[in-house]
């Protein structure tokens, strides 16, 4: 757990970047700092590994004040990923990844062998190992940056806009891999982004800061979407927050109607099309989100979403008015 205890940062010149910030970043979870430009996200992050020292207040990792610790030793235990990766241009991809293990005293050979495994973990084949950073695409560089930060298996990772230098399609892929990796590794991650969608997608906990480095709200993505603390947060999480909040509820509680003869099935019971030839346009299972069901109901030519079981067999129908009723009840229950 990382604890911010009444942390203040005033830069020389008098601008307050972080203003009495107290919060906790849970162990094994991803906490995302988000907010408008200049609100103190980077400053907050960099105080954790002492790249910046707070003016007052304390930051503790598992109860230990970072202020008392040797900078270099502290940082070797904390993975650090920055925008544009910051790879060493004069070192091969493999040696970039091997950096921290070697700082920690591993032999070159050992460190390189481990590095090769890590490259694979972040989705880069061995052929990239001997390349130099200039020979990689932006997305590949970012993967190497993540592999490099993971190399010494640090319990804590700091990531400052790790995915912002790549185009949306590549970012999408990196997000998926990030979530897959984090599911396996369970690191305590502090991430910074200025993209609220990214924060909601990747964060277990989201910290919204406002101008002047003040905490606006901290909570799970769904809490922020459903119960924004004030106008600023509501505005910041966006107009379609109602729709996005549906991503966090599954269709498990959604009542369905029995199948009708209008839905044509194949011999295994899988939906083929509607009787008049209209396509069913996709199906959902109880594990899918309400957002997907809503999307299906809206796009279906007949206004009905089709539920299937794990084998793809149709087992229920949700007409859009049922869905709307359900959403209204859900809203009332919150």
């Amino acid at each position: 757990m990382i604890t911010f205890d009444d942390v203040v940062k005033v830069y020389p010149g008098g601008s307050t970047a972080v203003d009495h910030l107290s919060l906790e970043l849970p162990t094994g979870k991803t906490t995302v700092f988000v907010g408008p430009s200049g609100c103190g996200k980077t400053t907050s992050l960099r105080m954790i590994n002492r790249m910046i020292n707070p003016t007052s207040g304390r930051i503790l990792i598992d109860g230990q004040d970072v202020a008392g610790q040797d900078d270099a030793l502290l940082r070797r235990k904390i993975g650090y990923v920055i925008q544009h990766a910051g790879l060493f241009p004069h070192r091969t991809v493999l040696d970039n990844v091997a950096t921290v293990p070697m700082l920690l005293g591993k032999s070159r050979k050992e460190a390189r062998t481990a590095a090769l495994g890590l490259l694979e973990r972040v989705g880069l084949s061995a052929e990239f190992a001997s390349r130099y950073p200039a020979q990689l695409s932006g997305g590949q560089q970012q993967r190497v940056g993540v592999a490099r930060a993971l190399a010494a298996d640090p319990p804590v990772m700091l990531m400052d806009e790790p995915f912002s230098a790549v185009d949306p399609v590549v970012r999408e892929g990196l997000h998926r891999e990030f979530l897959r990796l984090q599911k396996d590794l369970g690191k305590t991650i502090a991430m910074v982004t200025h993209d609220i969608d990214e924060a909601i997608k990747l964060g277990d906990v989201v910290v919204i800061l406002r101008q002047g480095g003040k905490l606006a709200q901290i909570g799970t993505p769904q809490e922020l979407l459903d119960h924004p603390a004030d106008e600023f947060v509501a505005e910041f999480v966006g107009r379609d927050r109602g729709l996005r909040s549906l991503s966090f509820d599954t269709a498990a509680g959604l009542p369905v109607r029995p199948l009708t003869a209008d839905l044509l099935l194949d011999e295994a019971g899988r939906p083929v099309s509607w009787g008049d030839g209209e396509p069913t346009g996709g199906t959902f299972t109880v594990e899918d989100s309400l957002r997907l069901v809503t999307d299906l109901a809206i796009t279906s030519p007949v206004g009905i979403a089709v539920r299937v079981d794990a084998n793809g067999k149709a087992d229920g129908l949700v007409p859009h008015h049922d869905l709307v009723d359900h959403l209204a009840e859900r809203r009332a229950a919150k």
């Binding site: 960099r46 790249m51 502290l74 940082r75 910051g86």
Partner: peptide, 15 residues
């Protein structure tokens, strides 16, 4: 020098 690279080096725990 690209200061971001130097920053990364310090952030990784180089003296």
């Amino acid at each position: 020098l690209d200061h971001r690279v130097v920053d990364a080096a310090r952030g990784m725990g180089m003296r």
